[in-house]
């Protein structure tokens, strides 16, 4: 596997698309910081990097199919699992290069503007970076799975972009629901009284409790963006476990990917 990984990395550094994607991440995160703030640069930078690395992984790994070079790897004796894990490692390296370019802007901005990102609750900055890095690994495993199982590069790009966007919206929805307070302070219109009640504390209808909360929390932790959003939110009770969820997701997705890839008909 080491030889295939080396060959992949050697091809990776020479791929123009990687440097274009890294430059894109740099520019987009610069705009993101200018229009938001440094915290937006850190967490938004990881979200941007995941989106861009999805496109890059499809382009990079899809070339193996379009050029037919994936068959050469089998011809020289590499197993399908070796090819899969070498590709997964290469796509993870590429994702970190892209994320590094995005975070370079944040570091430069923090250095020159003398600002540091906000942290909430029990989250320290180092912990939130660990959460984001683990989330990127989970996302990479998804992108590798798609790129290895769908031979058409362009289709993978569309699916990767679509799924990334939908998962981002879903994570935002889950995080916002989980962030809801159990009770709220205020008044509401009471139809029996025909008037507004006095200001008092009453149960929040939007608060999710019981099994539904456990399931929503688990789903939010499993999805890559859930961790990133939680690292930047007040609802952070289980922050230390989120990297474990992400790594578990990455492992599960990779095992499924290898299993299906071993049975795939490579024309």
């Amino acid at each position: 596997m080491i030889k295939i990984l080396r060959a992949n990395l050697s091809r990776l550094w020479k791929t123009k698309a990687l440097w274009i994607c890294a430059a894109g991440a740099f520019v987009v995160n610069f705009i993101n910081i200018v229009t938001q703030n440094i915290s937006g640069g850190v967490y938004g930078g990881f979200v941007i990097s995941i989106f861009i690395s999805g496109i890059f992984t499809a382009l990079f790994l899809g070339t193996d199919y379009s050029d037919g070079t994936i068959r050469n790897k089998f011809t020289v004796g590499a197993s399908r699992a070796q090819v899969y894990f070498a590709n997964l490692s290469a796509s993870a390296v590429a994702a970190f290069v892209i994320a590094g370019a995005a975070q370079l802007v944040t570091a430069l901005y923090a250095l020159f503007a003398k600002k540091s990102p906000n942290t909430y609750g029990n989250v320290n900055f180092e912990m939130s970076i660990v959460v984001c890095v683990a989330a990127m690994l989970a996302a990479c495993s998804f992108f590798t799975l798609m790129s290895m199982l769908i031979a058409n590069k362009a289709s993978v790009i569309v699916w990767a972009a679509l799924i990334t966007t939908d998962v981002l919206f879903l994570s935002q929805y889950l995080t916002s629901r989980l962030d809801e307070e159990e009770t709220v302070y205020g008044s509401y219109y009471d139809e029996s009284l025909g008037d507004y009640t006095e200001m008092h504390e009453y149960p929040n209808e939007r608060y999710v409790s019981g099994t539904k909360r456990v399931l929503m929390n688990a789903a939010d932790n499993i999805l890559p963006f859930g961790g990133i959003l939680k690292a930047n939110s007040a609802n952070t009770a289980d922050i230390a476990f989120i990297p474990l969820y992400s790594l578990g997701t990455a492992a599960a997705v990779s095992v499924i990917g290898v299993f299906v890839f071993r049975k795939k008909d490579i024309k």
Partner: peptide, 14 residues
Amino acid sequence: RSSATAVVIALMAG
């Protein structure tokens, strides 16, 4: 096709 798709999707997302 893949490059065109990547460019357009990235531009639209931006």
